[in-house]
Design a protein around this nucleic acid. Structure first.
Lengths: 217, 217
DNA sequence: GTTATATGTTACTGGTTAGTAACATTGTGC
DNA sequence: GCACAATGTTACTAACCAGTAACATATAAC
């Protein structure tokens, strides 16, 4: 009457490590398949943990969703400010480089656009907590773009910031409405360049009178 | 021993009429809440028909979804071509008016952006039939915009068409990422105007030399 | 070692979903 | 009036889902 020889196959994963694995899994799954489409069981399986493990580390699926968005948002701003820092003092190049990075990112395999923008479609209720996170982030973006537009000498900084923000959201969603790596995205940086230069250059009258003045010297 | 006096409360709805009611319900519900979030039972209730009635008129929920998108797409193109027709011969105004109409639409109460763009987020699988419908429609849009850009005398019609298409998708999604009736949408038409005029005007050198020539007369 | 605590595991609840079977009722053509 | 087809109604299946209870096992502190 032998006892079972081993039951040592069980591995215990400590809380903090489990949390990291779960958040990694959520980051991948929610982004690629959408938050509503992914079950908690699927998250557990992908993370290599038990479902109960998830509910001991997090309150609910909604908390997972918020943590996911916070992380994605944090990553976005880290990149944004890093780009700004690397062209400190050159606001035009700051804007161009930011959009250049974005354009490059759209070519990543498996790119699915902006996590925050995508989630908005899954939760139409404007009072849902995820919506506030998205709105706050976008408002901040608008503010930062406007600051830089001012530094770049834009005639209408707010107008330029709005235009750039519209283009950015357009780029995000266009990666999904058009086939993967569609040439439309190649127009992003050129269009931004035109927009920025048109907004910052002295207007046509001004240019013409400059030329005339020079010509009359 | 009386028989029940009446059982006449039952109303029969004929197939074609039921179809119309169902498609109306789907149009409203799928658009406002998302296709995945709306159950067939909810559609039946909203349409005022029995669930079996739906399954006798349509194969599956997927068919409902496709019919919904086809209808929305048809409506879009009807409006688009009507706008083009009303400014026949004035390509610049055709473009501006189209975006003006779009901007006006974003201010409708309950506006939730482009039905086709929204559905893309709910069905990440690029092989799903809904994706092909969206891609086809967007490709057609790009083609039409390019034609009109050519007629407007754009230096780079494809570039302009791409830029406008990016802005359009941006406008759609920005109505959701920003609060309702956010002023960012007020920049849509000005930005489009700048973009079109910048793309169609002779370039700066050209303008300057024109002025110089005129000045030397 | 012993004990307290954290984790693993299973099975469950109560709810929802897409889709169907079976039968009752109504309308229609004749 | 009669028969047949279309529709109304109910109840169901099988699958899925978020979240939990209860108990088994492992780890860590002492």
């Amino acid at each position: 009457m032998n006892k079972p020889i081993v039951k040592q196959t069980r591995k215990m994963i400590h809380g903090p490590i489990a949390q990291a694995q779960i958040l990694d899994a959520v980051d991948e799954l929610f982004y690629m398949e959408g938050a509503r489409a992914v079950s908690v069981d699927a998250v557990a399986k992908y993370a290599g943990v038990n479902k109960m493990c998830i509910y001991r580390q997090f309150e609910s699926k909604d908390e997972l969703l918020l943590r996911y968005l916070e992380r994605r948002n944090h990553f976005f701003w880290e990149n944004f400010e890093a780009t700004m820092a690397s062209y400190e003092g050159d606001p035009r190049q700051q804007l161009l480089q930011f959009f250049n990075n974005m354009a490059a990112r759209t070519r990543w395999p498996g790119y699915r656009g902006c996590a925050l923008a995508n989630i908005v479609n899954e939760f139409p209720d404007r009072e849902h907590p995820v919506r506030q996170l998205v709105t706050t982030s976008r408002q901040k973006l608008l503010g930062r773009l406007q600051e830089i537009a001012e530094q770049a000498g834009a005639n209408d900084p707010q107008g330029l910031a709005n235009g750039l923000a519209l283009l950015l959201d357009g780029a995000f969603i266009s990666t999904q409405t058009y086939p993967a790596n569609h040439p439309i995205l190649e127009s992003l940086v050129p269009v931004v360049t035109t927009m920025v230069d048109a907004a910052c250059l002295p207007n046509r009258q001004h240019v013409v009178s400059d030329v005339l003045a020079k010509n009359n010297k």
